[in-house]
Amino acid sequence: MECEKIRELILDYSEGDLNQSDKLGVEKHLKECKECNIYFEQSHKVWNLLDNWHTVQINNDFIPRFWDRVTTEDRKKGNAFDFFRNLRPNLVSGGVGVIILILVVFLVNILVSHHDNIVFTEGDRSDEELLIEFDRSITKETAESLEIYGPWSDEIEENKGG
């Protein structure tokens, strides 16, 4: 086996996780290869050296301090929500006020605005008369022009009789 492959297997070998054939292969290689043997030893040594970095001593009040922190944060959050809670009634009353105001303006507008109050200028009056005259003439022309097709009802009666 190649050295690189052996070095990858050394971790499993030292933990006893290799199958029999790989285990024998590693052991054979370690006997023959000085460099891999050095790596194997150093790998062990460095792993054991890490034990020299000791754990920290932890204060006994870790858990009570945690709950104090939770309470403090909850209180802060509660205060923030109080602000919104105080804000909410004001917003509701403000909104209702605005709606009432709009309704009042709308109703006043309806009651006050009347047809009589519409002021026509002389120009408007003559324009309106012109439009009425035009409308009458069109109606008349249309009725007369349709006479060439009639009277439909009499023809139908005659056809039925014939």
Binding site: L11, Y39, S43, W47
Partner: peptide
Amino acid sequence: HRGRMKLI
């Protein structure tokens, strides 16, 4: 494995 090699 790689970490061990670097630590060596």
